[in-house]
Computed example of a mutant assay.
Amino acid sequence: MAGEFKVLAFVGPAGTGKSQRTHFIARQFGANYIIDDGLLIKDGKIVCGKSAKTEQNQVRAIRRALFEFPDHRDQVKRVLEKAAPCTILIVATSPGMAVKICRQLSLPEPERYIYIEEVATREEIEQALRERHTKKQHVIPVAYVQVRRNFAGKVVGRLKTFWSARVRSGLDDAEKTIVRPPFSYYGQVEIGPYAIEQIVRHVASLVTQVDEVKDVKVKTEEEGVVSVNVSIVVTAGKYTFMEVGNKVQRRIFAVLPFLTGLDLNEINVLIGGWKRNDD
């Protein structure tokens, strides 16, 4: 599959105006498809995928943009397999991100990197960054109607752009849409086992009849997927030990993915002791 694709990468930090210039770059270098923030785009239309800007927290957004969710990744791979041979432009915040996306989608690594500094002046980049930080708005390089249909956040409006002479000549008129996602994210986020352990300890301790959380072990199954083992001491009372264990399990399943964006493979709850209820 990899030999049937030519891959290019358009690279620049978040908020520097890449998505405003994506269609121009794609046309200039003959790219048939664009991969941007979890979406596969062709001729200004979403072919498949899901925007990272629809996610409700930062970790899931980064994982979405890197195609770490199997159903999302497989959907895009199936479409690309049918589209081969073709040229793909990957929009990324760094060369490393572009390479990760290629590996996830079984594509060859980019043969050329085009950097935002090559197509935008320093003043334009600084202006784009100010706009991102003050208005919290992002650009998606697809039509307004498409975004309204597919985007869960707030759609602000169509983009009107003022271009430098460097890229004005031959610029296409592909439509772009301004959106305001639930949050803004930059760079990478790492959540260590200790942070997960503390969340699990707190959540488990709030369950009725849990007297003590003795031990929590966190095991990383794969990127973004963890398993948790919890040992608790239970006070005798209204609920059986099995019911208390089930309550702890359900509470962690509900809270941990919401707070961290991680997926849970399994949660094992061990009753490591019990105490009488003297009341």
Rank of each mutant, 00 (worst) to 15 (best):
Ala9His: 13
Gly15Lys: 00
Ser19Trp: 00
Arg21Gln: 13
Phe24Ile: 02
Ile25Pro: 04
Arg27Gln: 15
Ala31Asn: 11
Ala31Pro: 10
Tyr33His: 07
Ile35Cys: 06
Asp36Tyr: 03
Lys50Thr: 07
Ala52Asn: 06
Ala52Cys: 08
Ala52Ser: 09
Thr54Pro: 02
Ala61Gly: 10
Ala61Pro: 04
Ile62Ala: 12
Arg63Thr: 04
Pro70Gln: 07
Lys77Gly: 05
Lys77Ala: 10
Glu81Gln: 12
Glu81Ile: 07
Pro85Leu: 08
Leu89Val: 12
Leu89Gly: 06
Thr93Ser: 12
Val99Phe: 05
Leu105Pro: 00
Glu111Thr: 14
Tyr113Gly: 00
Ile116Trp: 01
Glu117Ile: 04
Val119Trp: 01
Glu123Leu: 09
Leu129Asn: 02
Arg130His: 07
Arg130Pro: 01
His133Pro: 03
Lys136Val: 04
Lys136Met: 08
Val139Thr: 15
Ile140Glu: 02
Arg149Gly: 05
Asn150Arg: 08
Asn150Val: 07
Ala152Tyr: 04
Ala152Cys: 06
Arg158Tyr: 05
Leu159Arg: 03
Leu159Ala: 12
Lys160Gln: 09
Thr161Gly: 06
Phe162Ile: 11
Arg166Gly: 05
Ser169Ile: 13
Val179Ile: 12
Tyr185His: 13
Tyr186Cys: 05
Pro193Ile: 04
Ile199Glu: 01
Ile199Ala: 08
His202Ile: 12
Ala204Ile: 02
Val207Met: 11
Val207Gln: 12
Asp215Asn: 08
Asp215Ala: 06
Val218Ser: 04
Glu223Ser: 13
Val225Cys: 08
Val226Leu: 09
Val226Ser: 00
Asn229Cys: 05
Ile232Lys: 00
Met242Pro: 09
Val244Ile: 12
Ile252Glu: 00
Ala254Ser: 10
Gly261Phe: 03
Asn268Asp: 12
Val269Trp: 02
Gly273Val: 10
Asp279Gly: 15
